[in-house]
């Protein structure tokens, strides 16, 4: 699998189409993000499947935004799975990345990862390696929807009570690009107070994920308290889909209904 990716990245770098390729590198015994700039130096490039598929994924789109902000004229390649590509498409509609300046190199996720993620589309539009597998439904959401409202509320309050307010869910999120964050707005959330106000802290973030979350699940993996945030945001995505027939990142150039609603002249 990795051979096809390295071949594609080498072509892109050698032809000068991209300044650098943002991918993952296995170095010093650990896997982390790395900008590859030399087509002859791709030995350590990996796909983030160390002990099991997708166990060392990173928010590469977030690092890509950092590069694009400082070097807007340069074109960068980036490693994408299905979720990352949804991120690229959505970030483009929010004017955070210019699609002409990004060359995605896609990989399709295996069945095991698709099931673990409950991913609706575990592959990008184009991919250089991997097999296309069927999307998986949101079983975790269906399971919670099956219990009555009072018990469901108790369930979520118990989960939120574990929060240590590290802001890791926001910090890891490739879709959190705002310069000012509501979660640090004193009118809403007092930053110096621990524990966070419940359920205000988590529901504020959940509302902000509406029409924006691309279901990559990195927040869930970054949570030191193991709060099932992904399930919460999946539910929010379902509501937006039911109300507005929109899921972020599945169709290029399709703006979030919440983005459009805030424009003047739209009722």
């Amino acid at each position: 699998m990795i051979k096809e990716v390295k071949k594609r990245v080498k072509e892109l770098l050698d032809s000068g189409k991209i300044t650098g390729f943002l991918g993952l590198r296995d170095m010093n015994g650990h896997v982390g993000p790395h900008l590859f700039c030399d087509g002859g130096d791709l030995e350590a490039l990996v796909l983030g499947d160390r002990e099991r598929p997708g166990d060392s994924r990173y928010p590469l789109n977030k690092q890509l935004i950092h590069l694009a902000r400082s070097y807007p004229e340069d074109t960068f390649g980036v490693l994408v799975r299905g979720c990352d590509e949804r991120g690229l498409k959505t970030l483009s509609t929010w004017n955070q990345l210019h699609p002409d300046k990004v060359v995605p190199v896609g990989i399709a996720c295996p069945q095991e990862l698709a099931e673990a993620c409950e991913c609706l589309r575990p592959y990008p539009d184009e991919f250089v390696c991997g097999e296309k597998v069927e999307g998986c439904p949101y079983d975790s959401v269906a399971q919670l929807d099956g219990i009555d409202l009072a018990a469901r509320f108790d369930h979520w309050m118990r989960e939120f009570e574990k929060c240590i307010k590290c802001y890791g869910c926001r910090d890891i999120c490739p879709m959190c690009f705002c310069k000012e964050c509501s979660l640090e707005s004193n009118e809403l959330i007092r930053t110096g107070d621990i524990p966070p106000e419940m359920p205000l802290f988590h529901l504020t973030r959940a509302v902000h994920m509406a029409g924006r979350c691309i279901d990559c699940g990195l927040c869930n993996e970054a949570c030191p308290a193991d709060i099932p945030l992904r399930t919460l945001y999946k539910k929010v995505a379902d509501i937006i889909d039911e109300e507005f027939h929109y899921r972020p990142g599945y169709v290029a150039d399709q703006k979030s209904p919440l983005n459009i609603l805030s424009q003047p002249g739209v009722e």
Partner: peptide, 21 residues
């Protein structure tokens, strides 16, 4: 410009506290 928790670290497994972040 930013801090990224290491996913393969056996100590923190891709997580950090607010200070580490």
């Amino acid at each position: 410009i930013d801090t990224i928790p290491c996913k393969t670290s056996p100590v923190n497994e891709g997580k950090l506290c607010i200070k580490g972040w």
